[in-house]
């Protein structure tokens, strides 16, 4: 992959946000806040940090990127299209009949997504399986697992958190999209998660808190995990849901709805202005 500079990454993240808005408008259903909040991290991963090859999506030494909270897949599809996994024109087919871009990612239709996901709390377990497999083979690639904060209300996530620590899965990095919202409201009202960092430390993880909207910090944090050899790494990304579109930011009502034509126009105007 081409080694993008911080400025190039910032520009790419803005383009990806614009394409997310277009895709959501076209689809008419889906999730807005999460994909926009994670756009910077996906950009850093696909255009700088991940070892991957869009022409050989099953290259055996690639880093594995496991998306646990499958509902934010619009940001992944857009990033993948920009990276060259499939033509950008296919983004229009998201959530439509006969498309390989399912509402929640389908491994059978698009193997490059590594796993099918959607039901929450299952990704970290699967990432542990990938990491164990790599350790058994003595393979050097890294396993990245993206999770949401809300899915830490699922017991299965903590079952996996214990296992990663027990088996010293130092080849596993989890990035939590800590955007504080879920469908019914604010996480700390629905079912409090704090102190999340302390919980992970108690579970035997190396915890890093990160500002995910500062590209320099994102890149240095993600590139820095290679040097952490003792424990699995948990990066808590304090994301702003809806980031980049002021009327969506930090409003849980944008979790699971899409913009109408007028709202999309306003969102694109704002994003273009920021570019």
């Amino acid at each position: 992959m081409q080694n993008y500079t911080i400025q190039e990454l910032e520009k790419k993240a803005n383009e990806i946000r614009q394409d997310i808005i277009k895709l959501l408008l076209e689809a008419g259903s889906g999730h807005s806040a999460g994909p926009l909040g994670m756009a910077d991290i996906f950009t850093a991963l696909y255009f700088r940090v991940l070892k991957h090859n869009p022409e050989k999506p099953k290259w055996k030494d690639r880093d594995r990127l496991i998306l646990s909270n499958g509902h934010i897949v619009p940001v992944r599809y857009v990033a993948m299209a920009h990276a060259g996994y499939f033509p950008k024109s296919e983004l229009k087919t998201f959530r439509k009949i006969n498309s390989k871009l399912e509402g929640h990612p389908s491994y059978k239709k698009l193997p490059a997504v590594e796993t099918s996901s959607g039901p929450l709390g299952e990704g970290l377990s699967q990432a542990c399986g990938f990491a164990l497999s790599a350790k058994m083979d003595g393979a050097k690639h890294r396993v990245w697992c993206l999770t949401s904060d809300g899915e830490h209300q699922e017991g299965m996530t903590w079952e996996a958190a214990m296992l990663a620590s027990k088996y010293r899965l130092t080849n596993l990095t989890q990035i939590i999209d800590r955007n504080n919202i879920q469908i019914d409201g604010v996480t700390e009202d629905i079912m409090p998660l704090e102190p999340l960092a302390e919980k992970y430390r108690a579970f035997g993880w190396h915890v890093i808190e990160m500002n995910p909207h500062d590209m320099e910090e994102v890149v240095s944090t993600l590139e820095g995990v290679e040097g952490i050899q003792e424990k699995p790494v948990c990066i808590i990304a304090n994301t702003i849901p809806g980031k980049g579109v002021s009327f969506m930011e930090n409003d849980y009502k944008w979790h699971g709805v899409t913009p109408n034509a007028e709202q999309a126009k306003a969102a694109l105007r704002e994003l273009r202005g920021a570019a």
């Binding site: 594995r64 496991i66 491994y107 590594e114 796993t115 709390g121 299952e122 970290l124 377990s125 699967q126 990432a127 542990c128 399986g129 990938f130 990491a131 164990l132 497999s133 790599a134 058994m136 017991g155 299965m156 079952e159 996996a160 214990m162 296992l163 088996y167």
Partner: peptide, 24 residues
């Protein structure tokens, strides 16, 4: 090649799934 997940059947399944995805 033996993995003991403890009393955690959901994780048993998820970890098995990850291993299978990766060719085991």
């Amino acid at each position: 090649r033996f993995i003991q997940v403890g009393v955690a059947e959901q994780n048993l399944t998820g970890v098995a799934s990850g291993l299978a995805y990766d060719g085991k």
